[in-house]
Amino acid sequence: MGHMMAIEQEWWKNKLAEDIYATLKLKEQTIPQFHAQSSQLWIRRHLVDWLAVIVSEIGICATAQHLAVYLLDYFMDGLEVELCYMHLMALTCLLIAVKFEDHCDRIPHYNKLNSYIPVTQYNTGQPYTARQYLNMELNILKFSSFELCIPTVPNFSSILSQ
């Protein structure tokens, strides 16, 4: 047991970890830039803060949280989303990120995600349907060309902190 713990704590020192780090560094060079050109940029902070609360309450990993924010930024930067679908878009970015970065046991069900929908001036708080989530997921994936391997800060933090 103690030997296994030492291996897990020093995973970043092996050849595979070096290759992963090099690949992430290379991939980082090709990430599309965030231009902050959305006319809806004013709502971004609210959505990111709101997602952080959900991530904390559900116990989602940091890499999924950062990927969700990247997807949200990238999608908003290129497309205008009707205000009534902003929370659906943010929740779907989180859902995609959890599916890609976290353990399958952490993937929240639509009902759980719907429980976080706030009532706002542009949103009645009505739950989104499974079809709406799936349609939004497909839109986000198509827009990002199904490219989800995006290096974010948590991908490097464990390596760089050593």
Score class of each variant (00 low, 15 high):
L83Y: 09
M5R: 02
K13E: 03
I54K: 10
A90R: 00
Q37T: 14
L91M: 09
D73F: 02
L95R: 04
I7A: 08
N111S: 06
F143A: 14
Y74M: 05
I107M: 10
E28V: 06
S144D: 02
E28A: 10
Q162S: 01
F34G: 01
H3N: 03
Y122R: 11
C93Q: 04
L67Q: 07
H87W: 12
D19W: 08
H3C: 04
P118D: 13
A52N: 05
N111P: 02
V81D: 08
E101T: 00
C104W: 05
T129R: 09
I117S: 09
A90I: 08
Y122I: 14
I107G: 07
A17S: 12
E80K: 14
L41G: 07
L47W: 08
H3G: 00
P108W: 04
T152W: 01
D49P: 05
V53C: 03
Y116P: 07
Q37P: 01
L26C: 10
D105K: 05
K142H: 00
P32C: 03
E147N: 06
V53W: 01
F34S: 04
T30C: 06
R106A: 08
I54L: 11
I150F: 02
S39Y: 11
S145P: 01
T63M: 03
T23A: 11
N111I: 15
G59Q: 09
G78D: 12
F143P: 02
A90P: 00
M136I: 02
I7P: 00
Q29C: 06
A90F: 06
H66I: 02
N111R: 15
M86C: 12
T129D: 07
C84W: 04
G125D: 15
Y128N: 12
K25Y: 13
L138P: 02
T124E: 12
N123H: 09
T23R: 12
H103E: 10
N111H: 08
L26D: 14
Y128R: 12
V69L: 01
Q33G: 07
G125K: 15
C149Y: 10
I43S: 10
R131N: 08
L26I: 07
C93T: 05
I43P: 01
P32W: 04
S115N: 13
Q126E: 15
D77Q: 08
C93P: 08
E80P: 00
Q126P: 03
I20N: 01
Q126V: 10
L67M: 11
G2I: 10
R131T: 14
E57A: 01
V48I: 14
M76Q: 04
Y122L: 10
Q9K: 11
D73G: 05
L160E: 08
V119K: 15
K27Q: 11
Q126A: 15
M4N: 00
I31A: 07
I150Q: 03
P151A: 05
T152S: 04
Y21Q: 09
L160Y: 07
